[in-house]
Design a protein around this nucleic acid. Structure first.
Lengths: 326, 326
DNA sequence: TGCAGCGATGAAAGCGTTTACATAGTGGAT
DNA sequence: ATCCACTATGTAAACGCTTTCATCGCTGCA
């Protein structure tokens, strides 16, 4: 900074003003300083600025799993909202491991991002509430007892009902669910499914999994080897539905002729014609966008907790069809 | 920090030593300090530490497009390598826009990450070489005249030959390529394709696109409306191949009966049974892993440039088949 | 008894900014 | 000439840590 000031023939203070583009600088000097800075490759040291101002103009995003297009879409929405507010995004992924998430969040907290956006963390309520005391936080995709943070969620109840109704309407009665694994969410999706089934007098078939392809793949294998295999499978999310499709395909089981498959999230994979997965739509970019706006409000000083619920919508494609009587 | 020192009844210096887990601290005091720190929710301020030490123990990763599973796989490999070396990863995405990439890199440079990993940037050679003077840099996925940085690449020449040979072997002669858009790469893949075709006495059909679904979708539409449409389409990467498949499906064109489709990268989408895309395999995680190791070496002081070339391998699945005589 | 070595201390400088403040120079309007 | 608004300057403190250095008390060993 000294170098720039010297070479531009102005004071350090002025350079500082220019770098923060303050309006109280003559355009003449502004340009001069910027030119010299570019020439010298000078770039303000964010660490120093951060130390001095106490803010980083950065929001930290922890994504449950960067492999899942659902989360990258959320990141995209977040990026847009942050950009509009002149903020940067720092992303980190939990890599589907609890320890990975903790590390990622610790890092973000360590770098003192102005806020924290947690996309479907698998940590416990308690842990998350604790993190939330350290920085303005918005969490999305999981239900829990939140304190001191905003949340934005999908109405799991309704989503599960949409799916069950759709399948029941097609004549299915043996419907299975490959559940995902999100402790903090209190297994809402799984519970909602069970409830919806029971409410219709049907027995919920549920096996454990995780929100990835492997567990869909494994789960489908398990389910189809039952004495009375299900005629429809509701996977925890699109990714695991893809796994289910692969396994069924390998087993020579036709979809939807023999078995119907439903996902959740409506990621772009679901829309591919070759896949054409029936799923529940969630406005992904919008979720990220709104969540970030809520976070910005919180950073700006809002202190009351806000909890938003988004209505899911069923998208019927070609992986669901009438049940075969067997 | 003062608070922790006070509450633990030790000096600030000692707390500092503990936080950096220096061996010169008695285990008694270490535990005590750690306990107090956890209790108080104290976490060293990275900005301050960074200012004092001049290093961040962080490597910045700029991904061409976070939506593309190819890049997230690379990030995963990078994360593993970084983790082993006690470093953190900060990711940012270029969102397929040049300005987005510049911003992302500027941010990483601003936060003074110890190194820069650029995954298929679309910026010009000149720009990238300039950035590389500011921090140890490794670039991957693009060919260019690099100075002062390491690179790791795919042998495009060979990859294109594999594809062309495969298709020609199936009897195809009208083979089209939907090119991607990476200025710095000098359009290597496109050139390699053209060369391979010409070498076999065939006319290369090439249209412009970008490495995403949309451009595959658009491109397929354009290609199939030609008077003499191609019998095989080589998309720039898997993502755009997916777009091609969708468009063909919509147009009622059967794959591979009417038209064969080939991708590039062998992302996990390609492997889905429902898609089963013939493509060229690249060891994604490994690329990220190796690139990060090279970067770590560079950070550690190596100054000579290293350029690695990885051999591609054709994975034949079900989107390619014999050419129909038409 | 003396000495080495270890663990700990306290003080102080430094990292690169921002920020507040007091000061000063330059026109232009009055 | 006088005054004001505007732009710029110089200084100094502060941000929260690391690092160095001289010092010190303790333990155990020769």
């Amino acid at each position: 900074m000294d170098d720039v000031a010297a070479k531009a023939g102005v004071s350090r203070a002025l350079v500082s003003l220019v770098m923060r583009d303050s309006p109280r600088v003559s355009s003449h000097n502004r340009e001069k300083v910027l030119a010299v800075a570019a020439d010298l490759g000078y770039r303000p040291n964010m660490a120093a600025r951060n130390l001095a101002t106490g803010e980083t103009k950065t929001i930290g995003v922890m994504l449950n799993d960067i492999h899942n297009p659902f989360f990258t879409a959320i990141a995209e929405g977040a990026s847009t909202a942050a950009g509009e507010a002149g903020m940067q995004l720092v992303m980190s992924s939990g890599w589907l491991r609890e320890a990975g998430e903790t590390e990622a969040i610790e890092m973000l907290l360590g770098m003192r991002t102005d806020g924290l956006l947690l996309a479907s963390p698998r940590l416990s309520d308690v842990t998350i509430n604790e993190f939330a005391t350290q920085a303005p936080t918005v969490i999305l995709g999981v239900w829990g007892r939140w304190e001191n943070l905003d949340s934005i969620n999908n109405d799991e109840q309704h989503g599960a009902e949409l799916i069950v109704d759709h399948l029941v309407g097609l004549g299915h009665t043996r419907i299975a669910h490959i559940a995902g694994n999100l402790p903090a969410g209190g297994q809402q999706r799984r519970a909602a499914f069970a409830e919806a089934m029971v409410a219709r007098g049907l027995a919920p078939i549920i096996i454990d999994g995780d929100f990835n392809e492997e567990s869909g793949y494994e789960g489908a294998g398990v389910l189809m080897s039952l004495n009375e295999p299900p005629t429809a499978i509701f996977a925890g999310n699109d990714l695991s539905a893809i796994g289910v499709l692969s396994r069924l395909h390998e087993m020579g089981i036709r979809v939807p002729d023999d078995v119907s498959v439903v996902g959740y999230d409506d990621t772009n994979i679901a829309g591919i014609s070759a896949v054409s997965l029936t799923t529940v739509h969630q406005p992904r970019e919008e979720i990220g966008f709104i969540a970030t706006q809520m976070l910005l409000e919180r950073i700006a000083g809002r202190t009351d907790d806000r909890h938003e619920d988004l209505e899911p919508r069923l998208v019927v494609r070609q992986t669901t069809g009438p049940a075969t009587n067997s």
